[in-house]
Amino acid sequence: MRERENAAKWTGRHFIDSLDLSPPEYESLFNLANQIKKDPSKYSSRCAGKLMATLFYEPSTRTRLSFEAAMLRLGGQVLSVSDVATSSVAKGESLADTIRTVGGYADLIVMRHPREGAARLAALYAPVPLINGGDGAREHPTQTLTDLFTIETFKNRLEDLTVAFCGDLRYGRTVHSLIKALARRSKIRFVLISPEELRLPDSIKNDVVASGSGVEIRESVDMENGLRECDVLYMTRIQKERFFNEEDYIKLRDTYILTPEKMKLAKKDAIVMHPLPRVTEISQEVDTDERAIYFQQARLGMVIRMALILRLLEET
């Protein structure tokens, strides 16, 4: 009965924005993901006969593989177009038409697109559930799902946390999504560490403040300052593809590098997260520090995506 009630709540839904799910819905996915972790064989054919299409208008290895691995581990199958931009788009097909066509073939669509708001537009035309795999600098909700699940797994709570974000806070969509989702929890303190040019957009800051959740926000250009107090350090890459001008990118790319020396400043029970891929912002020597959990985070990302796929597809 409980399973059926859950299915009724999820059927026909899309996942476009990290705020599309309520905190209890996040908890329900965490619970399912933990069950999958405990007994994966129980879920290995739950999506048998279902087909997931991945449409990536922008290069991605990690997110696409994570989704595909998740679907295959559930016994489903995958239709994959790794570079849509050179196929249907080159022939002038609109996004709406592509989505309607692919929605006729598959039971679920995962899409990444370089334009902001593309997933929201696609969802208007999608005849099957659509998951946003990232739209420009705006949203990356399944990374948020991964990040929240990782924090919950390692810190056993999503409240009363000091979370430091470091790097590209202007264009980093994973940062935007996670900040908005965490701001709904109580006793959250953000330390925003970035160069002046890559500060968090005011619109997001205003939304967080306006949400009335009592979140504390402190901005700093100094990495060491935030390191001392944080429970979670969320590092990000300065993304070359978000710059119109290469000179600006080169000037900023090595602003923050996390080293073993800097890690000495961090709390003993802090965790270091990164949405990956990492370039130079975390030195490889940090990988052996047990507080560096970014590869475990990637693994948890696949498990929580299994939970999401299962919920969106069950009983459809």
Partner: peptide, 13 residues
Amino acid sequence: KNPRCISSYERHG
């Protein structure tokens, strides 16, 4: 006014 918005790029947008 956002140059990266899908509405300025997509025919159906």
